[in-house]
Design a protein around this nucleic acid. Structure first.
Lengths: 334, 334
DNA sequence: ACTACCCGCGAAACCGCTTTCACGGATTCA
DNA sequence: TGAATCCGTGAAAGCGGTTTCGCGGGTAGT
């Protein structure tokens, strides 16, 4: 499938009156070529509309120009606009740097199958993981020397470059906000506690209490799974066990919506009786009634940061983990 | 970056006692090799844990094993869970067939820039477009012989394989449903009418009226842009010009939500005073109050269909456009 | 003025797989 | 039995870049 007959080095070299080696040097930014000849090459390239064949280049150089983005094959993950947005940010940054994004939707369990092999065998120059749970494969690839970036905080403390939102700080300020509004009994509905993000958000919530000198009762801490349904279920349970509850911090907006649905159905007014804060600032936070007070994370920036971190690694530059700040968005629910 | 020293054909050939040509034949399913030798090759492959170098293979054969997915670089498009879900469906199907998905987020305007070149220059074996507006590039690539699939209905009637939801049928049944509920004055808030999907949904709405023998007044037809805000704005306008309106069909759920928000704020009860139907069955349709009656489209299936259509083309099989059925989901709003 | 170095540049090997071509032997047909 | 055909197979020529190696001329050092 070679739609167009494209010129090769041979042609460029001939019209520029130099050798193919020189063409290669010029096209790869080798400074050692005499300016005049370099110029002749550039003109030939321009004139003939030459574009490098990336495949041939990849074979010879060992660099494919491809970066894998590995996403858990859990629909609830990718159908979440969150990851879609992150991915588009990544893709844009990479594209600006002449790299392409290869999307890999893989079931977490199969990470030692085809995808793992693909990554291990040097057919991509690097990999960006959207990782929620285990990162065994990640550590393995790290050892192989494959440039990696993790979006989210890794579990293992192997020094793998990562980008993440300041989950702790966000949760902390959400909880403080509820306290500042006069809430005395604040529950938290966490995400899947197997994920570091959920843990960090819980820590932020705890820290806010600690600073106030009163740790929350254990039964105010409920482990959800980021779904609307789990938000509803845990709120029902909370209302049953703690009828005097007056604040809920949900670890994402969807669960916050579930909480509000149940609260209103139970005759509690939000925010008058119970105040609710979510996390993410997803679309629904704006469209819901009451509009949701929440912690905004800059998802596009997250993707771009991941892309930049990858570029930095490939260029052998210095880099360190990037933690993006969050912002409390006050709307109607708290 | 070659993490592992991998065996090559040379090694396989030697241990199997055959030539490299034979190894290639076996690995590419050429039937003409004697079963015994083929077996020896397979054993050698197994024993050495050999995996083909896709790059070298691509250079020699001209097939890269890469399929581009081109998405409009409009954040509101990709952050819409819709496209994320479609993409994951595509990716899964391709992966099952040994192909990989290269994500290309490109501004529509730049389609004759880098991305266009990339596609034109045979560095992917095919391209799947998520196309909303112009499809000039698509027609061009089609002429170049690049296998294409369009997700959504193309504007030009060049016979490009596409997959789409039955927008017409869905809109038709939504409108019929409103009529069946006793609505006499039904407005429609369309999507950007430059998109075929929006046009088809409008047609479905019109057809339902036509069948009933009474075409709607022109001023009941409002062109929105799929955003929450536009749903709100058009509903306000409708209430002003047609206070007796009793039904609204919004071309997506987000605009339907906007409509409901405005209606309730204006003291109209949904569904008692005004019934509202959306389109998509997005997450918000389930979480909103009142829960949204809407037209469900199977987004995952859409992605998988797109992937399958691509595979079919690459295999030179017969294929034709795929139109996926919709389903009316009755909840509370109508 | 002579040796030692450095520098820009081309020839050629090479990356790992695919594919054409032709050869030797077996089979078929007359 | 001889000529024509067919088959499985290996040698070798690519695919289109990258990179090593070494050459010839120019500069520097003494």
């Amino acid at each position: 499938m070679a739609p167009l007959a494209r010129p090769t080095y041979a042609v460029i070299a001939k019209t520029a009156g130099v050798s193919e080696a020189t063409v290669s040097r010029v096209l790869n930014g080798d400074e050692s070529v005499h300016p005049d000849r370099a110029q002749r090459v550039r003109e030939a390239v321009e004139e003939l509309g030459y574009k490098k064949n990336r495949v041939a280049s990849a074979l010879a150089s060992g660099r494919t120009g491809l970066i894998a983005v590995v996403i858990d094959d859990d629909l609830s993950v990718f159908s979440d606009p969150f990851w879609g947005t992150v991915t588009s940010g990544v893709s844009r940054v990479l594209q600006e740097n002449g790299l392409h994004t290869v999307l890999m939707v893989a079931p977490v369990g199969a990470l030692d199958g085809g995808v793992a092999h693909y990554l291990k065998s040097g057919e991509v120059d690097g990999a960006i993981f959207f990782v929620l749970h285990s990162d065994a494969l990640v550590s393995y690839l790290k050892k192989q020397g494959l440039p990696l970036v993790i979006t989210g905080t890794p579990h293992s403390n192997a020094d793998i470059p990562f980008v993440d939102t300041d989950n702790f700080g966000g949760a902390h300020s959400a909880t403080k906000h509820l306290m500042g509004q006069g809430c005395k009994k604040i529950a938290i509905i966490t995400g899947d506690i197997g994920t570091t993000a959920a843990k960090q958000r819980l820590d932020g919530y705890l820290q806010a209490h600690r600073e106030k000198g009163n740790l929350p009762i254990k039964s105010l801490i409920r482990e959800g799974d980021y779904s609307f349904e789990s938000g509803k279920a845990h709120t029902e349970a909370l209302l049953a066990s703690h009828p005097d509850i007056d604040g809920i911090f949900a670890s994402n907006d969807l669960m916050a919506m579930g909480a509000i649905t149940v609260l209103e159905r139970a005759g509690r007014s939000v925010p008058n009786d119970v105040r609710v804060v979510g996390f993410d600032d997803a679309l629904i936070a704006q469209t819901s009634r009451p509009a949701l007070t929440t912690i905004r994370q800059d998802v596009v920036a997250l993707g771009e940061a991941a892309g930049s971190l990858m570029i930095a690694q490939l260029n052998g530059q210095e880099f360190e983990p990037i933690i993006l700040p969050t912002e409390l968005i006050i709307r109607e629910s708290a």
